[in-house]
């Protein structure tokens, strides 16, 4: 790729912002740029990134999904309860259960959206409340403490794919979570780039009517999209559990807007059809750095919400102001 094309890309600018940001934080507190801190950031944000990838795919298709967090917690909480009740102590089992729940709930979204053609934002707001309400009413409301978490899950949370020894002999490493993220990224990339259904997601997001006329099966594509987002939410549910070694059915829910914000900051258009995985990952990085590292520069955590809001407002303002200027340059009078 040549330099000219690079400067045209949204991701380039975003990456620059992340780098500048990191340098600023690092000058104030040099702890930031240590391998250990970066490994830690990767471990704690991999789950968020996977959830964001699900939302990214939905946004590409021209929809929006605010129920992904509710699906994630449903998957997690049902999985942990089943494991405890059945006495099965197996991480694969946990993933299987959580992913099945995710797929099923994703399919519920898909039914409302593809068959009844309902607006996606309001539908997923509704299903989010529906899923979470069902979980709390029929599965339970009590948090599962670390003592009751199956060992296999705790072990999974500590598993590293790369370990580095500290001078004092203790070790730290790159979590297996990062590997899962890499797998999800590669799989999603392959689907989007090399399968007809992936191209179909771009097509219905770009021009739905044309997609229909060309012969795409829109229902099938929408079904796949929402189920895939549900599946990824299921994966994230278990990762979150292994990360914090604690399961509270009220966690995760409520962070959906931050996740959408990360994807949108990454350059994905809310109208559908345009966006990249790289952008999404950079967007997640930006939000994560804001969330986890304000403390490093001496700001209390209660500044978090404010900063994230600020970044979103600035991000969308710049994007749309740019669009407006470009439209004016084109001198097309249609855009009045």
């Amino acid at each position: 790729m040549n330099l000219k094309k690079l400067t045209k890309k949204n991701e380039t600018y975003l990456l620059l912002i992340v780098i500048v940001f990191s340098i600023v934080i690092n000058t104030i507190n040099p702890v930031f740029m240590t391998v250990e801190n970066i490994f830690d950031l990767l471990r704690s944000s991999s789950g968020t990134a996977i959830l964001a990838i699900g939302v990214f795919v939905v946004l590409l298709s021209g929809g929006i999904d605010v129920s992904c967090t509710a699906i994630a917690i449903c998957g997690q909480y049902i999985a942990i309860n089943v494991l405890i009740a059945s006495g099965v102590d197996n991480i694969v089992m946990a993933f299987l259960i959580s992913i099945s729940v995710g797929l099923a709930l994703g399919a519920v979204n898909a039914v409302f959206i593809s068959i009844f053609n309902l607006p996606t934002l309001i539908t997923t707001l509704g299903t989010s409340s529906l899923f979470h309400g069902l979980l709390l009413e029929f599965v339970g409301t009590k948090a599962v403490n670390v003592g009751n978490i199956p060992d296999s899950i705790k072990a999974f949370g500590k598993m590293n794919i790369l370990t580095i020894a500290r001078p004092d002999g203790t070790e730290y490493g790159l979590s297996i979570f990062f590997l899962i993220l890499v797998i999800v990224v590669v799989v999603t990339w392959l689907i989007l780039k090399f399968t007809m259904i992936g191209r179909g997601i771009y097509a219905i997001g770009g021009n739905r009517e044309a997609a229909q006329r060309t012969g795409y099966n829109i229902r099938k594509i929408q079904f796949f999209t929402y189920c895939y987002a549900g599946l990824l939410a299921g994966v994230m549910g278990v990762m979150h559990l292994a990360l914090i070694r604690y399961s509270n059915p009220n966690y995760i829910v409520g962070t959906e807007l931050n996740i959408i914000a990360a994807v949108v900051l990454g350059g994905t258009r809310i109208s559908g059809g345009t966006g990249t995985l790289t952008g999404t990952l950079i967007g997640v990085a930006l939000i994560t750095i804001l969330q986890k590292n304000l403390v490093l520069i001496g700001l209390s955590s209660y500044w978090q919400e404010f900063f994230i809001g600020m970044i979103i407002v600035l991000g969308v303002t710049i994007t749309y102001a740019q669009n407006k200027i470009n439209a004016r340059r084109k001198l097309s009078i249609d855009s009045v």
Binding site: V264, Y302, E305, I308, G309, V313, V316
Partner: peptide, 27 residues
Amino acid sequence: LLIAMIGVPPILATLGTQGLFLGLAIV
């Protein structure tokens, strides 16, 4: 201003300001 002058879709504009205003309240 975000919606009418800059042309940000309402859902995005208010998604951002939602965090901003709540953030201010927390701060």
